[in-house]
Simulated scan of single mutants.
Amino acid sequence: MPKLRTLVVVAGAAVLARRALRRRIRTSPLWPMPALDEPTSGRPRSRALRVLVAAREEVADGVVRLRLEGHDLPRWEPGAHLDLVLPSGLVRQYSLCGDPEDTSSYTVATRLVPDGRGGSREVHEQVREGMELEVRGPRNRFPLVEAESYVFVAGGIGITPVLPMLRALGEGAEWRLLYCGRDRGSMPFLEDIEKLGRGGDRVTVVEGPADVDGFLADVPEGAAVYCCGPQGLMDAVEERFPRVRLERFAPRASADGDAFEVELRRSRRTLTVAADSSVLAAVRAELPNTAYSCEQGFCGTCQQRVLEGEVDHRDELLTDAERGDSMLICVSRARGDRLVLDM
Rank of each mutant, 00 (worst) to 15 (best):
R65A: 14
R65M: 14
L66T: 04
R67I: 13
R67N: 06
R67E: 13
L68V: 14
E69P: 00
G70C: 10
G70R: 04
H71V: 15
H71S: 14
H71Y: 06
H71G: 13
R75A: 14
W76D: 02
E77Q: 15
P78A: 10
P78C: 10
P78F: 01
G79P: 08
G79V: 01
G79C: 12
H81C: 10
L82R: 11
D83H: 13
D83F: 02
D83T: 08
L84H: 00
L86D: 06
L86S: 07
P87Q: 04
P87A: 10
S88P: 10
G89F: 10
L90E: 12
V91F: 09
V91Q: 07
V91K: 00
Q93Y: 04
Q93C: 12
Q93S: 03
Q93T: 12
Q93V: 05
Y94M: 12
Y94A: 09
S95M: 11
S95L: 10
S95Y: 09
S95T: 06
L96S: 04
L96R: 03
C97Y: 06
C97D: 02
D99N: 13
P100W: 02
P100Y: 03
P100E: 02
P100V: 09
E101H: 11
E101N: 15
D102V: 14
D102E: 14
T103P: 06
T103H: 08
T103D: 14
S105L: 09
S105V: 08
S105I: 05
Y106T: 05
T107V: 15
T107I: 14
V108N: 04
V108D: 03
A109E: 00
A109R: 07
T110G: 12
T110Q: 09
T110V: 15
R111P: 00
L112S: 06
L112D: 07
L112I: 09
V113T: 07
G118L: 03
G119S: 12
S120R: 04
R121E: 08
E122S: 04
E122L: 12
E122Q: 08
V123Q: 07
V123Y: 03
H124W: 05
H124L: 11
H124K: 11
E125Q: 15
E125W: 10
Q126T: 14
Q126A: 15
Q126E: 14
R128P: 06
G130Q: 10
M131Q: 11
M131R: 08
M131I: 05
M131W: 05
M131N: 13
E132R: 15
L133H: 03
E134D: 11
E134T: 15
V135D: 06
V135P: 06
V135G: 01
V135Q: 06
V135N: 03
G137C: 07
P138W: 02
P138N: 05
R139N: 01
N140W: 04
N140S: 13
F142S: 02
P143W: 00
P143E: 07
L144N: 01
V145T: 12
V145D: 04
E146S: 15
E146A: 15
E146R: 15
E148V: 15
E148R: 14
E148Q: 14
E148A: 15
S149M: 13
S149T: 04
S149I: 09
Y150V: 02
Y150E: 00
V151W: 01
F152C: 01
F152G: 00
V153N: 00
A154V: 02
A154D: 02
A154G: 03
A154F: 00
